[in-house]
Simulated scan of single mutants.
Amino acid sequence: MMSVTATDHDFDRAEAALRPDAATRRLQPVRIWLYVIAALVFGMVVVGGATRLTGSGLSITEWKPVTGAVPPLTEQAWAVEFDKYRQIPQYQLVNKGMTLGEFKEIYWWEWSHRQLGRAIGLVFGLGFIGFFATGLLRGRLAIKVAALGLLGGLQGAIGWIMVASGLKPGMTAVAPLKLMLHLTTASVIFAGLVAVAAGLKRRENEPSTPIVRGLATATLLLVLLQIALGALVAGSKAGLTYNTWPLMDGNFIPPASGLFIQTPWFENLVDNPLTVQFHHRMTAYALLGLTLWQVWATRRVQPGTPAARRASAIAGLSVAQAALGIVTLLAMVPLSLGLAHQAFAMLVLGMAAVHWRLTRA
């Protein structure tokens, strides 16, 4: 039988000896496994958002990657955990007088968030070992997946560094920059997982022009930037101020005296709610414009192709996400809308990552 080289760059040389359809079928378990991990990461991001919005992130004051999987099982154990929490500034300055029952509510959110992290590590580790041992993970594919796994391990450490920043004297929440790093790293992992998984599915050859590839890259990067800016909005609680749209405090573009009221000037980029929210708004407008331009350009040079349909889907998701963001702002970020806004951001990111990958098939 004449061998046919697989068109997907994630198929290594051993797979090239198979027909592309056979290679796709053989790697389907790996693709499903990657999507399962991506779904777990998606869930962890949403639960992490709930942890932040409910003020639960500092309820567990120690980092115990293994033994921390077991929650308090007796009233005495609960009393010990509660006593640890009462020693930190958040309790003393914000939640003083909290009951044990109220503490349990915030504790379970943070415990669930960490438990999802453990589940992701377990599913990834067992799957990687199994697929590597059976030869399904080889070559560049194995390197890419291993890199994502290492980044996931690093993410656990970043999460604790973030929590530790909120345990320092005078702090009642985690540092915005640490929160941004934590969420952005999770987003990169999620995007990488869905991109690699999408690359393992057999497709007909689809020509891709430089403009389509360039716009796909720019869209993916801008979505990641917008998510990072959203983390700064959350970390500085900027969503609880300037709850009007399209104007902010009566202006579409606030005066420089308000945007750069702090010194040195760069501190405004993180700690000034007006500046942080303004940047998030402007990037949202830029992202909308870019996704609409991507639709027009892709339909113009590749009409009727899957790439054109994906570009339209990304634009539609971006419009919906912008509308949801406006509603969330006007409602002063209730838990349900805040979580929906964060979850929808991951959907936009996932679609942008898939599109970026498939333009390089």
Rank of each mutant, 00 (worst) to 15 (best):
T359D: 09
V188Q: 04
Y107S: 02
G199Y: 05
W33M: 04
G230Y: 01
L232T: 09
T99Y: 07
P273R: 04
V354R: 14
S236R: 01
G97S: 09
A22P: 10
M332T: 15
I88M: 13
W33G: 12
F131Y: 09
L247A: 10
A322I: 00
G289I: 05
V163A: 15
E62I: 10
L259H: 01
A216C: 07
E102S: 13
F344G: 15
E81P: 02
V46T: 09
L150I: 13
G43D: 07
T172K: 01
I120Q: 07
T275I: 00
V194R: 05
L18G: 00
E206K: 04
E75A: 05
A297P: 09
P89S: 14
G149Q: 03
L151V: 08
L220N: 07
V276G: 02
E204Y: 10
A14S: 14
G192L: 03
S56F: 09
L349M: 13
P72R: 04
F11I: 06
S112P: 02
T298N: 10
G192T: 00
V354F: 02
L137V: 06
K178E: 13
M282Y: 08
L177P: 06
W296N: 12
Q321E: 14
A307I: 08
W78N: 03
G166N: 05
D12F: 02
P273W: 05
L122P: 13
R310Y: 13
N205Y: 13
L339A: 14
L347V: 15
G97T: 13
A323T: 12
K84P: 05
E204K: 15
A228F: 08
G121H: 08
I326M: 11
A6I: 01
L116Y: 06
L148D: 04
G55L: 12
V295K: 03
L220I: 14
S3N: 05
L221Y: 10
L329V: 14
K84N: 11
A320E: 00
L58N: 06
A23H: 10
A69C: 05
P303E: 09
R86F: 03
L183G: 07
W108H: 13
W293M: 15
D10Y: 15
L141W: 03
G199S: 07
A17W: 10
L179S: 06
I158N: 04
A133V: 13
V46F: 03
H182N: 12
W108D: 09
V70Y: 12
A23F: 01
L150W: 07
R213E: 11
A79S: 14
D21I: 11
W78Q: 01
Q92Y: 12
Q115G: 07
